[in-house]
Write a protein that binds this DNA or RNA. Structure first.
Lengths: 140, 140, 140, 140
DNA sequence: GTGGTCTAGACCACC
DNA sequence: GTGGTCTAGACCACG
């Protein structure tokens, strides 16, 4: 494993309707949330992201600035952008890996049942919304 | 159960970064995809949507126009907007309900493992991305 | 008094070394801090600021976005940018006016003593730094 | 009192938005303007500044270079950087000390009136701006 | 009309 | 090399 292998690699979905800068922000938040990015880890430089995906440097910068305002990362002049915050890991890596595997199995089952990706996404979204709504009722 | 009970109820998430008109479009697409909206079903009128959520009528119109251009719904002058297309149902309602239930159980398990909603969403997104990426490799 | 008379008018000092977007942010913060801008008050539109001072719309927008991230203002699509937060007024307007007047008198005295504006600013900065430093010792 | 006691001690405010090199320049200018640095006085060496604050030597060099270009200081090879110019002292040290004291009293009064540091700074900035604006009208 | 996003490209500050 | 700021101008979303 080289250093590079641990570095986040961004993906853009141009048809999602989500603005690119927001997709970058969301991806970093998710990685941190899952413990895949930890305090001290470096984000790829703006220029590196430009090489990975076709995107304007300002857009990347905008995303990094938003993350900084949020307190999740810190830009260090001339050195790079680094993860700052370490939220309490939501669960152990092992437990999380199991859950990940279980979810993969569920998805596989859904596909065998004839659901296409769009429908799977819709069902997932529905189920997740239900937990969000339930939560809103508890913590309005 | 009256007809109204089946009528789609829109929700807007102002913090998602997704433009409101797009959120409406996505929600209709998901409902159709899951068979929760079927050919002939009526979408709520613009005024009804305005009662449900704080939104400008033009924005609702825009969403319905996009759905019509997509061929998913059809505006009938003076009567309303109706679902046209019924894409092949991805699976039987019964099978789908089982999958829905299984997914709910998985989410419950994740929460018991100490994952918060944000982390659950991240894990789900990760898993779904994996199937999408896998699909891209098969059907480039 | 017309509506316009109450609207904030920005000034840029190109020789201060402070980036323009930051000068705008600071000016809004000061106005709010002094109670000259209150909850619900509207900031001039980006295009209006462009007319007031020679500045790029993106720069103004950047300033407004920063203020929004800070929770001080709120941008409402298609309507404008409005002050949100009402911090507890630091003192009564009357008391504040007196203090303002006293400070004006002090400045006048300093000028009569032969101090130029640069030196006055330096002395003020020194005195203010002293309170800031004192505060840091109390709340490190 | 040794020579060292009079030596300028730099401070950096990373949240001011002013670039570090500019903060150093401004601080030297202020000290000279107030007569706290006089012709022949030595500025701290680059290494000394690095001990005082976390800063890159290039940044200190840059600041000293700017001050030299301005004619305010002079770099003497192998010996250090020294203040050159003595602008006409704006007032007598005694008078200045009185004004400093008066200003300190004013600040104390403002704090007792319930103004926090932010609001005090805002009021000071406002008052100083007023004299600057007035001056511009006189000397355009 | 309003705010919001993106691209393109220049220039600066810092390490 | 890094991040940070600014200008210029297009285009979108919303009211």
């Amino acid at each position: 494993m080289s250093d590079k292998s641990a570095m986040i690699h961004f993906r853009l979905n141009p048809r999602s309707g989500v603005p690119p800068y927001r997709q970058l922000v969301d991806q970093v938040r998710q990685m941190v949330s899952l413990g895949l990015l930890r305090a001290g880890d470096q984000l790829p430089s703006v220029r590196e992201v430009m090489r990975q995906i076709t995107i304007n440097p300002n857009t990347v910068h905008r995303a990094y600035r938003d993350l900084e305002a949020e307190g999740l990362v810190e830009g260090r002049q001339g050195r790079g952008t680094f993860v700052v915050e370490v939220r309490t890991p939501p669960t152990t890596p092992k437990r999380q890996a199991e859950l990940h595997k279980d979810l993969g199995a569920w998805i596989e089952k859904a596909r065998l049942a004839g659901m296409n990706d769009e429908a799977i996404m819709a069902l997932v979204t529905l189920a997740v919304q239900e937990i969000t709504v339930a939560k809103e009722k508890v913590t309005p």
